[in-house]
Design a protein around this nucleic acid. Sequence first.
RNA 1: GGGCGCGUGGCCCAGUGGAUAAGGCGACGGCCUCCUAAGCCGUAGAUCGGGGGUUCAAAUCCCCUCGCGUCCGCCA
Length: 562
Amino acid sequence: MFPDFEREVKDCLREGVEKVEENGDIPINPHDKIADISSTVSFKVAKRDKKDPRDVAEDILKHLIAIKERYYLIGKIDAVGPYLNFYTSKKFLSETLKKVLSEREEYGSLHYRGTILLEHTSANPDGPIHIGHIRNSIIGDSLGRILKKAGYDVEIQYYVNDMGRQVAVVAWGMERFALDQDKKIDHGISKIYAGANKLLGADAFRKEEVDSLLKRFEDGDGVTIKRFDNLVSRCLEGIRSTLDGMNISVDKFVRESQFVFNGDVNSIISSLKDERYAYYEDGALMMDLGEFGFEKDFVVTRGDGTSLYPTRDLAYHAWKSERCDRMIDILGADHKLISSQLKVILKILGYKEPEIVIFEFVSLPEGSMSTRMGKFISVDELLEKTEEQAYLEVDKRRKDLNEEEKRKISKFISIGAVRYDIVKISPDKATTFNWRDALDFEKRGSPYIQYAHTRACSILNKGGSYDEPDLDLLREEQEIKLIKKISRFPLAVKEATKDLRPNIIATYARELAEQFGQFYKDIPVLNAPNGLKNARLALVDAFRIVVNNVLQLLGIHAPKYM
RNA sequence: GGGCGCGUGGCCCAGUGGAUAAGGCGACGGCCUCCUAAGCCGUAGAUCGGGGGUUCAAAUCCCCUCGCGUCCGCCA
């Protein structure tokens, strides 16, 4: 409903401001600090006419008042100093609730169109995913859900690096170390990978063995390919089960090697060598991207003509480019340079450019993580510990529940807590992981929002069904504030979609739950007189629907009780 | 050395051109005969790293500077 109000305010302003002969953009601010929407046009007009913006605001206000009756979602309009403030009408409030109650889980959906290929995670299959990778997965998964809500047709892809040097190192290590059968497969592989790296050290001879393994793979040697494929598939199985456990789904795992074997990489290389930016150095094909602002040249092939990861990535993006309207990649900060070079080269070749969402690193108090060194905290371990902690919290409060129920609750609380803690942080903030915060459930994170949902469910459960509510009875401050917050959900979806920032949804979810908390405290529902009770039940139901929809966008379970 | 990002109360963090800088943790003080206290209310705590500039208006834009992170040709 808020977008409709926004449109009315814009139309109304345009009409009113024309009277003072101003045509350009009409600036409005939807923030709810003071009014529901405010406008700063007065400054603009005042500057042009060299007048006091406060006088201009008064002047415009007169015109607005005269026409405002035709805008049924606008209630009060006033001018505070130079600011023109718009407030929603009573009609707006009841229309908002009607819309939520009829659209249900569709509420908040927008009408954007097109297909998007969203790539996220794409962690190398050399071990389990750790708390750095999961930031990628959570941002990507949440964004995917948000973009679907916005109306896009979204396919999630995980690009599998199945022929990189790390895979060769694991394959090499497999022959020298026994796989720990007690461990989850990706953890077992990680141990071998770290062990192999240690053994390789600076040993040139051993490194040559790894190189020749890689060469045999690229030359299409059946046995080597099978070995690589086997361990990549098994590692991926482990990664996939971790992702599943966090409500993260991937539509397609795309293997890097397919672009080498089907000739795509070679055709990219031959197109590139005909470009005027191309040159050879010691047998390696290079691209001078100086005119695009890159100091360092881009290396397309090794001296021996074999391809490098960025070149194979180019082939992957060229392939994606022909299968969608938009490509979005979620990448760690270490890919900033390479991804902007990739964009430029795709453009040179005439392909679509991906939109890149960069997130900064997650480090440990003792420094950065490294799969190669075996120095990381895995997502499996994080979930295990948070679930354990969540169990203590559940057990403390719900002695009445049986073991199975308590386990079930601890599980969705811990998944939600982890997801929320990560998604709420702006992607461009580097963070340091610490156990104290990760295991703290006494803050306004996911459990708080889930709890608001359970309270609403509990009221609805006890209140029974309601019929034909007279929504105009909802006149208390906390009722109105809650409805207004509910009305802004589509706005949050729109902003998160436009900026590709899922943390906007996380903030909205918290604000929505906070508003319900205040409502809950001040407004009795079950003990209210009949008509009012009916209307309030409808409001609680509307809140329940919206908080459920928001949690859905964050991949967090909305429980009926906890 | 260069590029990019970040710097907001003791700690974490939202806000990226407009009004009184939003929350959380921690601290202090209140609220359960009443829909789950995983809650609600209140108090203390911020020269938005520092300096200069643009603007009617700057945490937000520009320049300089300091600190941290990250990247900088045959790894991925």
